[in-house]
Design a protein around this nucleic acid. Structure first.
Length: 474
RNA sequence: GUCCCCAUCGUCUAGUCAGGUCUAGGACACUGGAUUUUCAUUCCAGCGACCGGGGUUCGAAUCCCCGUGGGGACGCCA
């Protein structure tokens, strides 16, 4: 067990170096309900990062005791989400391991055994058909306002936890609690502690909502005569506006949303890393290897972080633009196919040159169809607002008229050739080259914005450009 | 209501442990400008915070106390 010192100063020193012989074992223990919540994903991520940082083991344990809600589909959704984020586990479903089974539903015999230990030690009693864990201390009754009832309470020694993130936390457990329900199911606190003991978990990294439960868990560890693991309670993800933590209903709360909106997994993962952790300098967009290298408890914050979809979108954009063009094409093509813009017959070189032109302007994959539509359409739909803006100034029709003959005569249909031609036409007519830009763009694409003009014309090709330009206003 | 945790720009955060180099740095967003008045790119600039009050100190964003605010827990849920 790694010794924890009380002050944050020593946190810096003791956690950066883990003795090689004491292998770190962390776990993510979700209950598969069919959705992969972003808060759960980040808890999984932090555990994974810590395991990879220390060279330890990342265990995936499925808390599937609730047979009503836990279906095979729900499990699959969870595993898919984990894999999408690139969070591979060393032990757990589909990979096995030496500390199985990794499904709580298959661990009943173990729980029976551990319950027997507590009972033998005189630390349990039955009430209303349920088994309670018995605390040690003076008993008294008190009226509880919140529950509006007379309760039996126990004066216990406060439990002191040296949390790896929050430092010293002290809390007393004042009521016995259920460890086995009257229907025979074991309770969360009990199975959680038993499993962590059996799986030799060294560090419990989980959400701050469990901080208050920790005293209960430590009481159980003590009753079993086992030294508790290191606890590290990470801050919660709060909703972007309003009060409280992110709930399932919040926009952006589920990993599935990002998959279906074509976000890049690496970008989502990078953003999640930054939500509650930082590398102590100005680095933000970093390869995962660097994050693993730098990730540790001292870099984790204590207060809850509001989820900011705009920042996520920005990081996603940065990743998108940094992609090699082949990868970008590989990712964008399916999106364009579903939008009905391209199919198997689409010329690959043409697609490649379109995407190469668009990548530096792309915001995200989901909006790619909008950006490239004009390259794959036979007709030009003129945007009314753009048209109004273009025609508000000067005499666009005249400019287009001046430009057309020159374009028709142009043999070198490249960006450079086009630029030269625009320059000549402008000079001849005593205009600035930019006087020709908006009307050309509008005539050819129907839009007021988009990719750079010369690139648009060059990639689209002479034939299409001329026919569209002639058709405009005709 | 009780207990626990937390508190720097609108948001994510650096700085807090070892008080002075902080007229508080970066990023997102926003606003303005530049890139031959094309453009969903790029660049530059601006805006913008130490929750309040006491205390300790020559000196406090940083240490202490009290308020206030925010979050969490208080299930025979996990």
């Amino acid at each position: 067990m790694v010794a924890i010192a009380a002050t944050s100063a020593s946190r810096l020193n003791s956690f950066n170096r883990i003795a090689p012989m004491s292998q770190v074992r962390v776990r993510f223990a979700p209950s598969p309900t069919g959705f992969f919540h972003i808060g759960s994903a980040r808890t999984a991520l932090f555990n994974w990062l810590y395991a990879r940082h220390t060279g330890g083991a990342f265990v995936l344990r499925i808390e599937d005791t609730d047979t009503e809600r836990n279906t095979p589909e729900a499990l699959q959704a969870l595993l898919d989400g984990m894999r999408w984020l690139g969070l591979d586990w060393d032990e757990g479903p589909e990979v096995g391991g030496d500390y199985g089974p990794y499904f709580q539903s298959e661990r009943q015999a173990i729980y029976e055994e551990y319950l027997a230990k507590l009972t033998a030690a005189g630390r349990t009693y039955e009430k209303d058909g349920a088994v309670y864990f018995k605390l040690i201390g003076e008993r008294y009754t008190e009226f509880d306002k919140y529950k509006n009832a007379e309760l039996e309470k126990v004066r216990t020694e406060p439990v002191v936890v040296e949390d790896a993130i929050r430092g010293r936390v002290e809390r007393a457990v004042e009521q016995d609690f259920v460890i086995r329900r009257s229907n025979g199911d074991f309770g969360f606190h009990f199975v959680n502690v038993v499993d962590d003991i059996c799986m030799a978990i060294t560090h419990v990294i989980r959400g701050e909502d469990h901080l208050s439960n920790t005293a209960r868990h430590v009481e159980l560890y003590r009753a079993f005569g086992v030294t508790p693991p290191v606890f590290a309670h990470i801050p919660l993800i709060l909703k972007s506006d309003g009060k409280g933590k992110m709930s399932k209903r919040e926009s952006g709360a589920l990993i599935e949303e990002y998959v279906s909106r074509h976000f890049l997994a690496q970008a989502v993962r990078n953003y999640l890393c930054l939500l509650g952790w930082n590398p102590k300098d100005d680095s933000e967009v970093m390869p995962i290897a660097e994050i693993i290298e730098r990730f540790d408890f001292p870099g984790i914050n204590k207060d809850g972080a509001r989820f900011d979809e705009q920042k996520l979108a920005h990081i996603n954009t940065e990743y998108l633009r940094a992609l090699p063009i082949e990868t970008f094409t590989h990712l964008a093509a399916p999106v364009l196919v579903s939008a009905g813009l391209i199919d198997e017959s689409t010329d690959e070189d043409y697609l490649q040159s379109v995407l190469a032109l668009c990548q530096p302007k792309a915001r995200d994959l989901a909006s790619m169809p909008e950006l490239v539509a004009t390259f794959f359409s036979d007709t030009v739909e003129v945007d009314a607002a753009a048209r109004e803006r273009v025609y508000k100034k000067g005499d666009p029709a005249a400019r287009l008229g001046e430009l057309l003959p020159a374009l028709e005569a142009l043999d070198d249909w490249s960006e450079a050739g086009l630029e030269a031609t625009f320059g000549q036409v402008a000079e001849t007519n005593g205009q600035k080259p930019t006087a020709y830009f908006p009307i050309t763009r509008l005539a050819v694409s129907g839009q007021g914005g988009g990719v750079p003009l010369f690139g648009l014309l060059a990639v689209l090709g002479k034939e299409k450009v001329l026919s569209r330009a002639k058709a405009h206003g005709a």
